[in-house]
Structure formats: structure tokens, C-alpha cells
Design a protein around this nucleic acid. Structure first.
Lengths: 133, 133
DNA sequence: CTTGACCCTAAAGCATACTATAGGGTTTAT
DNA sequence: ATAAACCCTATAGTATGCTTTAGGGTCAAG
């Protein structure tokens, strides 16, 4: 299958597929006589794997690790895979906490603002951002 | 005050200060005879404002808006400021939801892995990332 | 008078994940 | 034969918020 077909089936752009190849996520595929890339169904399966891993929050760099685990399962331990997952889980938790902190802070100051078309002269939001004396 | 002193007091790097100036967050300060930047206390107050806004989750671009509101309060309405805050709140909420979705998904597959030093041959994490047939 | 601390500019680099552009072959259909 | 649709490479651009580099003045102390 040529790149256009793989793009269609994977719902990724042709450019993204070439980018993934260059980024080391996919092996360089065989080439047809005219130089066109010639993919097999395995490429599609790999792309679906990549998409699911992305959905789960892994970066392309981390996905490279996941792919190498996947390609040589017997040379890796369950712990290696699980550690990657747990590390990512911890990162996501930290990000959520950070966002929740910001949200709480921002919500309290935004809610204090009555809004309206009056001048922002005495805006409590702007005041809240001023350094405390 | 020269830039080194302002950096110390604001706890930002000298480079960041010059970057903020170039990014339009701070006015170009007066210069001493030798060309050195000469800041006043107002610059420090502004930097603290910027830092608090960052803490609340605003991007530098949004902070530019906040600063222009702050500098000409009487030419803006409460609604303008409040809308900026509410939009940002909504963005943060969306990000939290997205992260929570990923977290839930990832947690369920990571927890299913028993770990250990056995080969990843039958790793449920890797399996979970494979496309379903 | 030189050393070290401080300041300057302009431009490039970093990380992430792509997207776009320029310039040029190939294949398919009419 | 020509136009549309497809493929190729290499390079640069996008967004964000800085940091780093290169190359070079300024100033106070010893």
C-alpha cells in the first residue's frame, strides 16, 4: 500500500507519516521501483498502536520506547513497561494538580468580579493580580 | 535600578527581562548615559503582576491584554477583564478534563499489569495499546 | 592597567509535534 | 499529449517561553 492509502486508513496526514518515519517511530518501509514507499498491514497496526498510546498521554519519545518493548517483548520485563506507565501516570497527576491549583485561584478572583459595562477602574480581578504591599 | 538588580528583586533572569521587553510586556525603559537600562520601582510592580498572572495560568499573550487593561483601566469595562478570566477558566477546565480522561484510561491498563521481572511477552499494557480486531 | 563583574545587541537554539513550502518526478485518465 | 492526482526530498515555519551563543562595550577595585 502506498502512503496515501495508509494515510487514509490511519486517519493521519501523509506528512505526519513521513514525520513519524523520520522521528524513528516507524521503520523505513520498502520502496517500489519508482521510489514510492510501500507499506504493509503491519504499518497500519503500528500506527493504530501509536495513536492509542498518544491518546493515553504518551509523548512520541515515550512511544518510541513502547514500540521497542513491543518489538522485542521477550527482551524486556513487565516492570520496564509498567514503570513507563506509572511514571506517565504520576506526570499526569502532577499536571492535573497544577491545573487545579490555577483553576481554584483564578476562579476565586473571577467570581469576585461583578462584570458589567462599568469601567475597569475598580476591577477586582486586576487588583487581585497586583502585588500585595 | 539596572537590570541585574531588577532581576534579583523579581527573581527572574536578566535574559527573561530582556525577553519580556522584546515581547511587548514591558515598555522599553529609560537608558543611562552608557546605554544601560534604568528601571524604576514600577517595573518591579509590573513584573510581580506578570508573575501572578502567570501563576493563574495566563499566557504571555493574554498577559499583554491584562497589562493593557491595567494601564488604561478607564478605557475598558469590567466585562472585558472578566471575559478574559472566564475564557481562561474554561480552557483550564477543558485541559483538566482531557488529562482526567487520559489518566483514567492509563490507570486502568497500568493497574492490570502485575509487574515483576518476567518477560513482557504477555504484557497487558502493551496488549491494551494494540488495536482491537 | 588589567581583571572581574556588569551591561549591550542580534541571532540562534531548545522542546514538541507537526505543517507548509519549494522544486521536481510518476502515474492514470482522457 | 496533457492535466490531475499522486509521490519524492530537503528545508523552513508554527507556537510558546525562554536560554544560549557570539562578539563586544563599561566600570570599579587593586
Amino acid at each position: 500500500m502506498r502512503i496515501g492509502e495508509l494515510a487514509k486508513q490511519s486517519k493521519l496526514s501523509i506528512e505526519t507519516l513521513r514525520y513519524y518515519e523520520q522521528a524513528g517511530l516507524m521503520d523505513t518501509p520498502l520502496r517500489l521501483e519508482n521510489g514510492y514507499r510501500d507499506y504493509t498491514h503491519a504499518s497500519l497496526t503500528l500506527l493504530k498502536f501509536i495513536k492509542r498510546a498518544k491518546q493515553a498521554g504518551f509523548s512520541l519519545k515515550e512511544i518510541r520506547s513502547l514500540i521497542s518493548f513491543r518489538e522485542a517483548k521477550d527482551q524486556h520485563t513487565l516492570d520496564e513497561v509498567k514503570t513507563l506507565g506509572e511514571t506517565k501516570l504520576a506526570e499526569i497527576e502532577a499536571q492535573i494538580l497544577h491545573l487545579q491549583t490555577m483553576h481554584k485561584e483564578l476562579k476565586s478572583i473571577v467570581q469576585a468580579c461583578c462584570g458589567g459595562t462599568a469601567s475597569a477602574q475598580d476591577c477586582v480581578i486586576l487588583s487581585a493580580l497586583e502585588p500585595k504591599l
